[in-house]
Amino acid sequence: MKRVMALTLFLAMIISTAGCSIKTGLEDEEKKFTVAMVTDTGGVNDQSFNSSAWEGMSKFAENTGSKARYIESSQASDYLVNIDRLADENCDLIWGIGFALSDVVQRAAKTNPELNYAIADYSFGDKTPENITGVFFRAEESAFVVGFIAGMTTKTDSVGFVGGIKGSVIDQFEYGYRAGVVYASKLRGKSINIRVQYAESFSDAAKGKAIASLMYSNGCDVVLHAAGGAGVGVIEAAKEAGKFAIGADLDQSYLAPNNVLTSAMKNVGKAVEIVSTKALSGEKTGGKDLSFGIKEDCVGIPDENPNVAPDVVQKAKELEEKIGSGEIKPPNNLESYNEFIKAINVKK
């Protein structure tokens, strides 16, 4: 009984302290334009999305004299708490990095209509709330370019694609890649076979490796992955088979310098920088999706591609320019792919 009493008293004590606060010396600081981001459970040093986003945000802060802050989430249940915490801190733009945060960003935007939010790599489509900016990438553009490189490089006239889990983001990769390969095959005047298989996972490297190994032994000599961690297995398989793999999201050549042909990169940081700068200049970005592609320098291939023949690199760069100017519009799903194939017309 004594303990129960003690417990109740303790809880009463805690609750009564609510509202007490100590002066920290931060209150008097001059108010600056503040952007802040919440990472997903990967943390800010994940060598991928989060670290790229933070890089872009730091750059933005440095260039404009604004303040940039981040909070790492260690559990999925932290997302809501962390996004809400930023709402208390008078942030001018609050970023959720990665689609895992889409639900909580939506909820926070609803309960804090006066604040501005942005979410990386997610689109709410037509239902984008007034104070959220959806930021997504035209990954099909870089996939198209690497597809072209694959088609130009293959000696066996057979290339492969290993996806993670089917969905609209991976569709961008698959159909952009397919179209790129077809484009190259028209240019070379011969047909190139494309094998597509899904690992049903973004983390199962063993499965990615098994699928890619089979593709290599069946004659493919270039395989693109869009499978996150499972894709690491694809690159491993390429290393073992002595064939080529194409990386995704980042320049993955460090994983196997002699076997990674090129990479279909997504530069989240650049997009974060662009949207934050827009918000700083007072431009209204909420209520719609902003898409980023080659034109904005947010997707593309690495600057250095030592494994690709120099003339192919040259042609790929020309292709990038054509995509940037809108002359070529790579497809991002089955429907637009079929249209693309029908309309394709390659000048030799």
Binding site: T17, A18, S21, I22, K23, T24, G25, L26, S77, D88
Partner: peptide, 27 residues
Amino acid sequence: YNPTQSLAIMFNAVFSRPKFITNVIIK
């Protein structure tokens, strides 16, 4: 990092608002 300031921030982070205490309880 300034230790007194940091500890004050941590104190405020938990006790300065009922919502924060609620979050701590939930967590």
